[in-house]
Write a protein that binds this DNA or RNA. Sequence first.
DNA 1: CTCTGCTTCGGAGTTGGAGG
DNA 2: CCTCCAACTCCGAAGCAGAG
Length: 281
Amino acid sequence: MNNGSPERLLESNYLLVSSSFRMYKQTITDRIETHWHDFFEMGCIVSGTGRHIVNGQTFRLQPGMVFLLTTADFHELIPDEGQTIELFDFIFNDSLLRPAIYESIFGQAGLFIHTFASEHAQKMESEFTLLWNESQHWQFGSEIIVQGSFERIVVDLVRQMGMNEPCDPNDSRAPMHPSVRKALLYIQHHFREPVSLACAADYAGLSANYLSECFRKQVGISFQEYLNERRLQFASALVRSSDLPITEVCFAAGFNTIPHFDRTFKRKFGCSPREYRKQGS
DNA sequence: CTCTGCTTCGGAGTTGGAGG
DNA sequence: CCTCCAACTCCGAAGCAGAG
């Protein structure tokens, strides 16, 4: 894959039909080009150094780094000269995500990537080793152990990312309508696909009109505006971090037509996607 | 030939009001 | 709290043209 076009890794090629997850131990000596998945990926760097570029943002890749990528993220791994990177790679689909975990992942806009310090890094590595051992020697109770271990890692990561701040009891704002929250999660998960208000409303359990009304009241912008914002965020990162043709970026971000993509892009960034790429290079 | 940008028009989304 | 309706707004598909 040398044409600058990110590869999309499909669940059917990496996950077994019978299982909601699969684990790999990877050894990387050469650059892994930009790609994304239609499954989730959680990794832990065991040894080696390099660069990890996620959604166009560069992170120092080193032992202790734990990351969790959703279907909306794309990334690239580049080992330093002469370095060999070893990592645990845990991939999974929706069915492993209980609602509370699902909400903690999709309820936030930030990236789930953190490099744990010495003792904490060892603890994370042990947790991944436990996952690895259980997945290699499946026996009674393995499912429970894997689920628990996986959730502990996610919770630890969420805590490190500072996304666990308790609600301020003095905060007078009304709590978010559960259906609006569901709709937000639906967008986070599906924005690269054809998303309609009707689908989101169906998922949230409200009529389309009422969801539209509640959405604007609680989020501050309309359903469509929010969806476009999410798509533009993804598209702008992809424009700057890949050589993918603008047309491909447009479709990859969930836009269905070039004119509309161009119009909304210009409205937000003040220039066309092509000009935006030139400015960034 | 490929990629990008523009125009047009039908259909989907938004919004406000009425009512259960 | 929620649905339904109607009027309005805006998105997206299709088609075409220009640049490289």
